[in-house]
Structures are given as C-alpha cells and as structure tokens.
Amino acid sequence: MDNFIKVLIAKPGLDGHDRGAKVIARGLKEAGMEVVYTGLRQTPEQIVRSAIQEDVDVIGLSILSGAHSYLFPEIMNRLKKADHSDVAVIAGGIIPEDDHKKLKELGIKAIFQPGTPISKIVDFIENEVQK
C-alpha cells in the first residue's frame, strides 16, 4: 500500500506571474509528491472544484496581486460549503505580514514569504498530512 501526498498548486485571481508557483510545484515533485498545477487566473470556484475532484491533501495558493484578503475567504467559504474543509490550505507570494493573522483565522495553515527554502515547505506539508 502506497501513500502519496497530493498537492494542488493554484493561482487565484488576476495575477499573471507564476514563476514562484512553478518552482514550488517542481520542488514538491522532487520531494516525491504528486502535484497538480492548474495554471493562471483561477477563480475560487475552479480551485475548490479541482481540489475536490483531485482529492488533494493540500492546497497551495500562490498570489502576488494583493487580492488575497478578498479571494482567500471566498475559497475557504466554498471549501466549507462543499464539505471539504479537511484539506490543508497554505499560501505563498506577496502577502504583507499585517494580513497574516486574519488569514490564519480563516483557517490558512501557513503563509510562506519569498525566500522560504523549499525544504521548509516540504517539512510543513509532510507534518500536516501525517496529523
């Protein structure tokens, strides 16, 4: 019996930069995870539906546009409504520290700033999934 960790890397909203998301996707793959990457400009509806159909353990949201305070609550609400709150949601990109507390209250498990080593993210995910 195998137990693979499956992660969805998603870019919500109008944000055309996915270098970071791709680096993370590749890094997690190298760490032995199965990574679904859905591409640019995803709506909260698309992200939640992908997470359900793919049955991922973790959703990684990458955002640089500054719209996280609008998009993240929408995503978390939709997950709740779809009875899919057991998935761990983490975030990365340009997210000012002032906003972290509020986002964590929404249920976002971790927020990784630019410069975070991939190994730290890998460790976090492995710990989170084992719980």
């Binding site: 590749r26 997690l28 793959k29 199965e34 679904v36 990457y37 591409g39 509806e45 992908s50």
Partner: peptide, 22 residues
C-alpha cells in the same frame, strides 16, 4: 508519468482544460 527518481509527479493537464473545469 511518475518520476523514477523522486517518486513524485507533476500533473499539469488541467491547465489546458480551463473551459470545462466548472
């Protein structure tokens, strides 16, 4: 494909199926 080296995989087919994903 699953990587023979890490056991991981990058699954990217959804990128081109945007119009039917919802």
């Amino acid at each position: 494909p699953t990587s023979h080296f890490s056991g991981g995989a990058l699954l990217g087919d959804r990128i081109r199926m945007d119009k039917i994903s919802t």
